[in-house]
Write a protein that binds this DNA or RNA. Structure first.
Lengths: 207, 207
DNA sequence: GCGTTATTGCAACAGATGTCGCATTACAGT
DNA sequence: ACTGTAATGCGACATCTGTTGCAATAACGC
C-alpha cells in the first residue's frame, strides 16, 4: 500500500486508525459468521474488538456502516472468471462458485448482511449497487468471449445474461427462501443461455 | 365471516379481539405506507392504534409479527390471473400487475417489509414462503393453459416458468436495487418463454 | 525530540425497546 | 342479569441504542 501523501492534511490514516478499523472489521465479520446479522450489535462489536462504542458510532455511524465496511474489508478485489471452457461450462463454473461463496462461513453471512442492511440504509444500498456492478462487470467477460467465439449472437448485452443467470439464484436464497440445488444452477444456466441464443438480450434490435 | 363455534373453548375471537387486531393491522399498514419499514416501531403502532404497547408485544411478539399479520390482513385471497390472451400477453399482463402492486402505496411497502423482516425472523420466512407458494401456484394457471394450447412443451413445469419470469424483477427491486422499466418486464417475459420453449423447464427429461 | 491536533477512551445521559405483575374491561356461557 | 376468565390497559422496570462533553492518547509536521 502506498500513496499516503494525497491527504488534504486533515485526516490521519496512520497506524492507530488503521489498527482500529482492522480490529472492528474483523470483529464484525466474526460476529456475522458466528451469530448472523440479527445478532450483530454495535456493543458486541465494541466488546470483541476492544474499540469503544462511541468510536464505532463516530466512524461507522451504526450497524449499516459496519456491514458495508466489513464487506469492503473482506472482498477479493483481484477475482476474475475462469474462461477455460465453453460458455455453458464457464457459466456453470461461475454459478457453482457463487453459490459456494454463500456457504462460506465468513463471506456468506457478510453478503447476506449487506443485502439485509440495504432494506434500511441508503449507504448499504449504494454498497450493494456498487458490488453488483463490479462483480457482474467482471463476470461479463465470459459472455464477451462467447460472442467472439460465435457461441452467442453478435450484440448480446453481456451483463443482461449474467443478471438473468444470477437472478433466480439470489431470488431463491434471499426472497422466496428456498434451497438451491445443483439442478437449479443448471436450469438457471440453461435458461439464460436459451434466452441469449433466442436474441432476447440483444441491445439494439437492428433487425 | 362465520364459524366462531369451532373454538376449543379457550380463545375468544369475539368483538374486542377482532377490533384490536383490525386497529393494529390498519395502523401497521398506515405506518408502512407513510414512513416505511425502517420507521416501523411497536410504540408508533401502539400510539396510532390506541392499543397498548404490552398488548401488541403479547399478541404479535414484535415487529416481525406485526408485519406478517399485516400482510395476511391486506392480501387479496381471491385473486386469479387473466387468461384472455396468448401466453406472452398473459405473462406480460401479470408482470405489469405485479410491478404495479409494488408501486401501490400500501401493498408495496408491506410486501417489502415482509421480505426485509425475513432476514431477521423465522416467522417472516415462513410467511414469505407461503406467500410465494400461493401466488406462484395461482399464476401457474397461465402456463398450464399454454401447455394445453400447445404453446409450450408438454411437461413444462409451470411454477418454474413463473419463477424464471419473476426472479429478475424481484432481484432488481430488492437485491441489486435497480429500477424496473417496462423494457425489463418484456425482457423477463421473453427470456422465460425462450427458456420454456427450449425445454429447459421440462421436469422429467424423458428424451 | 516537541508541540499541535486528530483520534480514541471514558462516563454520564436521553431515548427507545421489551418484560412483568397487577388492576380493569368485556366477551361467553349460564 | 350474573359470573368466570380471557384479553387488555397500566405503569414500573431492566435493558439496549445512540449521543455528547471532556480527558487521554498517539499520529503527523516541525
Amino acid at each position: 500500500m502506498s500513496g499516503e501523501t494525497e491527504n488534504p492534511g486533515e485526516i490521519r490514516p496512520g497506524g492507530r486508525t488503521a489498527r482500529t478499523r482492522d480490529a472492528v472489521c474483523r470483529s464484525t465479520l466474526q460476529v456475522l459468521a458466528e451469530l448472523g446479522y440479527a445478532e450483530l450489535t454495535v456493543e458486541r462489536v465494541a466488546e470483541r474488538s476492544g474499540v469503544h462504542k462511541s468510536t464505532i458510532y463516530r466512524r461507522w455511524g451504526g450497524i449499516d456502516g459496519l456491514v458495508v465496511d466489513a464487506l469492503a474489508f473482506a472482498v477479493d478485489d483481484d477475482w476474475e472468471p475462469d474462461l477455460s471452457g465453453n460458455v455453458e461450462a464457464n457459466l456453470m463454473e461461475f454459478a457453482r462458485m457463487a453459490l459456494a461463496s454463500f456457504a462460506d462461513p465468513v463471506y456468506g453471512p457478510t453478503h447476506t448482511a449487506v443485502v439485509a442492511a440495504a432494506f434500511q440504509s441508503d449507504r448499504a444500498v449504494d454498497a450493494v449497487h456498487r458490488f453488483f456492478a463490479d462483480r457482474f462487470g467482471r463476470t461479463s467477460m465470459i459472455i464477451t468471449r462467447a460472442i467472439e467465439n460465435g457461441e452467442l449472437p453478435q450484440n448480446t448485452d453481456p451483463e443482461a445474461v449474467i443478471r438473468a443467470l444470477m437472478a433466480p439464484i439470489y431470488f431463491r436464497l434471499f426472497i422466496s427462501r428456498q434451497s438451491v440445488t445443483d439442478v437449479d444452477l443448471e436450469q438457471a444456466v440453461q435458461a439464460a443461455l436459451a434466452a441469449a441464443l433466442a436474441g432476447v438480450f440483444e441491445n439494439q434490435e437492428r433487425r
